[in-house]
Design a protein around this nucleic acid. Structure first.
Lengths: 245, 245, 245, 245
DNA sequence: CATGAATGAGCCTTCATTCAT
DNA sequence: TATGAATGAAGGCTCATTCAT
């Protein structure tokens, strides 16, 4: 029993090792510019061993994406436990977003890749579902807060559906992240701290949605301080001073 | 003379033909899942002929993207001629965005592709510059209106730089387009008209930015009607009735 | 008549132009590293025009080689008219060799190429024969002098056949030329004047063959002076002072 | 241990197999007229397998040439151990030359190919150096004997440098080999035994250089007999009766 | 006659995947 | 179970040659 247990553990550890290195490759070089041989070399296992864990290169890459997405959802979940007014709570999600972006810079590059290639055909059905599930989890966690905001009267509920509001928040976040990646954009728009920009845009969208208390009516730096203390005490990300308040 | 003229025209026509089919391939199958032979077959020319027009597959694909981006910039330019309050004018850009998205659904898929691969290394310098120029043109046209909004006092100028505002608008637009492509997202968020969603999110962002007149204070359906009449009389896109006003 | 004459002349001139440039390409880049398009560009005619003169790339290259070989044979013929003892006369051929090598450095590179590729299959039969004829002409001119040397008693006729002697002379000449091309050889053997080396080796071979008067018994610098005066007054090649005598 | 040993052996054996067939192709068809697929077919391995051994077609071909050159240098080395007068010793090298030519007829075709193409750019640096090293080894072994000949007073040392003498010997040998390849030359010069012709020309050159004892003053058939006995007992090449002595 | 656009066979090389050991 | 040698399909690109104008 203990032997088989250890085997399971070792197998999991190795899978983790592979995924970690694959993630590095994926972020740095995209999908084409590396091959399974190089990955095998990097993790110090044989090529064949990789195929004991993943059915194909696409399968492996999808696993990388899913694992990241799961971390993201996990962070969202933790952020969901934050208490306070609903706008404070959605802000916690935004914080989680940034925490995630910090430890996974360029994650969206990977995510984008999934949209174009023939990953989905070549990946395992199981893994496909796993990925969609994590995506749905992220959406749901935001959606819950949105719905509560409407119930609480913080957020108008007669203008838009809760789904549309959720979508708007997701869109502004994803868009901000992606455009931040663009070096030309950074230059031209004078963006020196991409993550802060993401948060700012989220704030603007919340204000636009009429989610109270508006930026002008509340001291969100206090919220952030509490959030950090209660939920993300070990946050790696160092938030700069907000000037927009 | 007439002969050489015709030749030039025929060459241009064929280039158009190639670009058109390449665009179709790109949208439907991404970059990997087709090859030059198939494209040659589709346009009914020989492989070598393709290479009389484009130096490499990457070069060709970049040309596809640039052509689309140019159309986008052209539409922005036309929209820029719209008169009225600055918020109305930025709305005209948003309208142009939608007009573009209508005739180029999935354009952003192509654009995203450019971010990840090693296109840029393998494409001609000329074409690289052409692409960046069109991108800059789009940004600048929006930026001009933002700056005027600030000058006119429609848009607060002490909270954010004009570049940050522009970036926020770009981000929400791109993000909305991209997320709309996601079938899962459509389903889960109940999005039936993606383009309307994009416009709505732009509106929300403008409100969030405090760009007056706010959605609640102005009848933008009248603006839209005038815009259609004066600038886009032949708009292919049929805007649904706005419910958010 | 005058018109058709001019046409013939123009055609010949153009063929000459093409051959001249092709020779340059062949010498500088071998057979592979240039294409018909580049050659057409260099001579300022269209690709198709090249094919009005030559049936294939191989055919063209063979023509280049043959033309050079003909010049070589022509020089040999002129050298053959030199009078004096047979060893002086064979020396005249050696002089012709060097004169040729001077105006066609690296000619042997081209000649070597002919040995390996599938030129012969792809070239016209006519051209094949032309090439062999010029080669035979060169051989014959040397052979005649060798035979006369034997008849005159300058060259032993009981040790070797006249053909073998001729072959030995050809071999030492070709070998010296080819090895001179080798940069490494130049370096290692300290060869600063390849052509002089060729002549020296020819001399050594003649001595080895016992062709009188031997190097030690005759003032060949006087022979050379007369040769220059009588046969090659316009020799481009400036012979260095012979030290071996 | 035994397993890995066998693997190494098998790998070496296959490399040998590939090189052998490549050599055949190279000799029979030059560099252009065959492709890697055909070679793969000939050795009954897949195309990809070839690339496990060699980085490119050029690399492979250079390896063929180097391997042959190494054998040549090895034979030279063995010949160098022959004792006797220096002219006898240089004759031993000539013998080695012929022994090599016998087992590698047409080797010079391959060697010539290396001079013209862009092999050197596309081949591995390692292999480039290996080739040059073997070439230098051949030259050095001859050079040593030449220098000793001068020291011993067998060879005049005031007429030519030792390097020039070495070069002359190399030139006559290479030239004789190459011209022997020419079918037309064989015919016209009545060469029935090319190798004997090479040796004869070497002898003539030695005589021309004044390397004692001259052909007329020494019984080299006795030397040859001893050479065969002491150094090349298993010589595959059957020397014909020398008529020139 | 001269052109040069169009052709398409041909080739080297890569690399995901398999499977015998 | 882990390996890594072997595979061979696939694809981008070149270029000699043709032929309609």
């Amino acid at each position: 029993m203990s032997v088989s247990e250890r085997k399971v553990q070792e197998r999991a550890a190795r899978e983790e090792l592979i995924l970690g290195h694959a993630r590095g490759f994926l972020l740095r070089r995209g999908f084409q510019d590396w091959n399974m041989e190089q990955l095998a070399g990097a993790v110090n296992y044989a090529k064949g061993t990789l195929y004991l864990h993943f059915e194909s290169k696409e399968d492996l890459c999808l696993a990388v994406a899913t694992r990241a997405l799961r971390e993201r959802a996990d962070l969202f979940e933790r952020a969901s436990r934050f208490t306070g007014r609903t706008r404070e709570r959605i802000r916690a999600i935004g914080f989680a977003c940034c925490e995630f972006a910090c430890s996974h810079p360029d994650y969206f590059k990977v995510e984008l890749m999934l949209k174009s290639a023939s990953f989905w055909e070549k990946a395992t059905e199981t893994r496909r579902q796993a990925h969609q599930m994590e995506g749905a989890r992220c959406f749901r966690l935001v959606h819950e807060i949105v719905k509560e905001g409407m119930r609480a009267g913080d957020l108008p509920h007669d203008r838009m559906t809760s789904e549309s509001v959720t979508f708007a928040l997701v869109a502004v976040t994803v868009g901000s992240h992606i455009m931040s990646l663009e070096p030309a954009m950074k230059l031209v728009a004078g963006i020196d701290d991409p993550i802060r920009t993401v948060r700012q845009n989220q704030d603007l969208m919340c204000d636009g949605l009429g989610w109270r208390p508006l930026l002008a009516d509340w001291d969100y730096s206090a919220t952030d301080a509490r959030l950090r203390r209660e939920i993300f005490p070990t946050a790696t990300w160092c938030e700069p001073v907000t000037t927009a308040g």
